[in-house]
Amino acid sequence: MGRGASESSSNSGSSSVGSGGGSNSNSYLDRKVADVAEKQVVMLDESTTVAEAVKIMRQNDVSSVFVSRKGVPVGIVTERDVLYRVVAESRGPFKVALKDVMSSPLVTIDGSATVRDAISLMRQKGIRRLPVVAPGAGVGKEKAMLGLVTLKSVVGNMPSRSVELADVVSVPSSSGKAALAVVCPYCGSSFEGKQDLSKHIDRLHIGAGLLEGDLRQM
């Protein structure tokens, strides 16, 4: 849930792993998140039951809902939250309120930030969804929600389906000599090669096929 076919090294021991069309990818990465955010978001009061929220999610064809308290966004509930925090724990969806299973506090990003900033923040926080708020919205104040950026939607909209964020770094090996490893741009895990990285990203972060075009050239 990446990277391209070409690798360039530097004296610092790290390098960008890119692919053909990298300039287009970089152009997308530098766009403002407000311009690429998904505008269809659903906001529900924290007292709403999980059962009602799931019904609304299905009606609106969304996989998550924002949770508000007195009109102010305070959390988010995803399909995964429902599965793991309600179904897996045998809790009744008609009795459990969103406030009891939401992820809070909300991690948000200013609409003037770049797509690159959004990906980095999601990686840092270990999340896949990032609410986009109006520029200048202060912490603790009512935030004007502009939309939602997800890891999957960002990568899916990138030219060549490539993210120019993977690094090749030098790491110690069992023999005591330095070895090169490819680092996942989302969680920081390191792998021996791009194939292992691709499988990891496909399984845990995004979905199948992200690196398919690049791997065929190896």
Results as ranks from 00 to 15, higher is better:
G140P: 03
L146R: 07
V82D: 06
S104P: 07
S103D: 08
I206N: 11
V183Y: 04
R123V: 06
I127T: 08
S12F: 02
S160T: 10
V74G: 09
G138E: 13
Q195Y: 11
V65I: 05
L211P: 00
C184H: 06
R203L: 10
R85P: 02
T108E: 08
A51E: 15
M158L: 15
D214L: 07
L215P: 13
F66Q: 06
G207F: 10
A118I: 05
V36E: 12
V132S: 03
Q40L: 06
D100S: 15
S175D: 13
S174V: 13
R203H: 09
R31Q: 14
P131D: 10
C187M: 05
K199Q: 14
V139F: 04
V86E: 09
K39I: 04
S47N: 15
T150P: 00
M122A: 09
V96A: 03
A166L: 00
V17M: 10
D167Y: 07
L148R: 01
Y186H: 12
G13T: 02
V169W: 03
D35T: 12
V33C: 06
D35N: 09
K125Y: 10
E52L: 09
T78V: 01
N11F: 04
S14K: 11
Q195R: 10
A113V: 02
D110K: 04
L121C: 01
S25K: 09
D196V: 02
A208I: 03
G136E: 08
T114Q: 08
S23F: 10
G75A: 07
K95N: 15
S15D: 07
L215G: 06
V72L: 12
L130N: 06
P131C: 07
V132F: 01
F94I: 04
M158V: 02
E142R: 13
G156W: 01
G21K: 05
V42C: 03
A179N: 10
V82M: 08
V155N: 00
N26H: 12
A178S: 15
R128S: 14
S68P: 02
R128G: 12
S103C: 03
K95L: 13
S173W: 05
S104K: 11
Y186V: 14
P73I: 12
L215R: 08
G13C: 02
S47E: 14
G147P: 01
A51F: 15
M102T: 05
S12E: 10
K152R: 15
A51K: 14
Q59N: 15
A134F: 12
V33I: 15
I76M: 11
S8Y: 03
D100P: 08
S160D: 11
R85V: 04
C187Y: 06
A179F: 01
S25H: 02
V171N: 04
F66V: 05
G136W: 02
S9E: 12
N11R: 11
G75T: 03
Q59Y: 06
I206C: 08
S6D: 02
R128H: 14
D100K: 14
R116Q: 15
P73H: 07
T108M: 10
S47K: 15
P93A: 07
H205S: 14
S175V: 05
G21M: 00
D100Y: 09
E164W: 09
E52A: 13
S10F: 05
